[in-house]
């Protein structure tokens, strides 16, 4: 290797020993541990079909987390708290566009992400050009998006998923749900884009040092606007897939996805300061959170006990994974 390579590329070469103790590997151990724990508590937890159903539930969080990953990677305190609301409106809109007809699928595939894109672009514009902190801008945006879905549905969403989409959402091939195959495809594409394309390199560059990127001729502000737009589009698309699973739309289906999408990033070793981490990490984070939740549901715990366990575990994970002991 010559000296021209960026530090990011050099650090890609790690020894097997380093790999065994990397954050990614630890996340894998955590997943295995959780499944073993599930099996101990509930025999049959580790059976192939159940593992698949847990993975299938992680898909929606996983898709949302991809958008969140891009935003967080782009740095500058980047975070998108409107993903849950955009996911919700994605469900409602795609049901409206589809109206139970297979022939409407291209229309929904085109328009649903476009609406998400629009919401994301508005957030991005305000964040980049008016310097509103991302966390508060996207939060206000969440209000706007939720309000919009209330206004367009008047409280009662109409339409439903067509047969073809329901097959995608609930069907299996060789006992593997289609959704998981789709997710694997998405993981491969996303990893390729992040690692191998110019755009991916730009994203890491902007995230780790926006001044350097700016001086090298990247239009950082415009770039960030598009990252937020893409995040919105992905979240809306996740809504389409969530509809394929539920069949009929409900209001605010996505609100519970917002904070887990950020927590999964933290668990997966993506630095919330930006510029560091990859999508695989977020994927493991999503699976960890979903597995944990399904263990708690399977135990027939009350909502309260589930929240307490989740809160405690999140706290421990956050401290263990993102804690940096300072000098004081």
């Amino acid at each position: 290797m010559n000296n021209n390579n960026s530090p990011v590329l050099i650090s890609d070469k790690i020894t097997p020993k380093e790999f065994l103790f990397s954050k990614l590997a630890i996340s894998f151990y955590a997943i295995i541990l959780l499944f073993v724990l599930g099996e101990v508590i509930l025999p049959g937890f580790i059976s192939f079909s159940h593992v698949m159903s847990v993975f299938r539930l992680s898909v929606f969080l996983g898709i949302v987390a991809l958008g969140q990953t891009l935003v967080v990677l782009s740095g500058n305190e980047g975070i998108d708290l409107s993903v849950g609301s955009i996911l919700s409106i994605g469900v409602v809109l795609s049901a409206f566009f589809l109206n139970g007809q297979n022939i409407n699928i291209p229309k929904a595939l085109l328009f649903t992400p476009t609406v998400g894109l629009a919401f994301g672009l508005i957030s991005g514009l305000a964040i980049s050009y008016i310097d509103i902190p991302p966390i508060i801008m996207t939060l206000a945006m969440a209000s706007v998006v939720e309000g919009t879905s209330l206004i367009i549905t008047k409280g009662f969403p109409t339409g439903n998923a067509p047969p073809l989409l329901e097959t995608i959402g609930n069907g299996k091939i060789f006992n593997i749900p289609y959704l998981i195959l789709l997710w694997i495809l998405l993981i491969i594409i996303a990893s390729f884009i992040l690692k191998k394309t110019k755009w991916g390199n730009l994203l890491y560059g902007v995230g780790s040092n926006s001044l350097t990127a700016e001086l090298s001729g990247v239009r950082v502000k415009r770039f960030r606007v598009f990252v937020y737009g893409i995040c919105g589009a992905i979240a809306a698309l996740a809504g389409l897939f969530l509809l394929s699973y539920t069949g009929t739309p409900y209001l605010n289906l996505g609100v519970t996805y917002t904070m887990p999408s950020i927590a999964s990033l933290a668990i997966g070793g993506i630095s919330l300061a930006g510029g560091n981490g990859n999508y695989i990490g977020a994927v493991t984070g999503c699976i960890i959170l979903t597995t944990l939740n399904s263990i708690l549901v399977a135990l027939r715990t009350t909502e309260a006990v589930r929240q307490i366990t989740l809160g405690l575990l999140l706290l421990i994970l956050v401290i263990a994974y993102t804690g940096r002991r300072k000098r004081w």
Binding site: I79, I135, M259, I262, A263, A266, L272, T302, E303, A304, V305, R306, Q307, I308, T309, L310, G311, L312, L314, L315, V318, I319, T322, G323, R324, R325, K326
Partner: peptide, 21 residues
């Protein structure tokens, strides 16, 4: 030294759970 945003989100889930309990 974890990010305050995530930490207080985690504790908020915890407090909410205790209140609900």
């Amino acid at each position: 030294g974890p990010p305050p945003l995530l930490t207080t989100y985690a504790t908020s889930v915890l407090w909410f759970g205790i209140a609900l309990f």
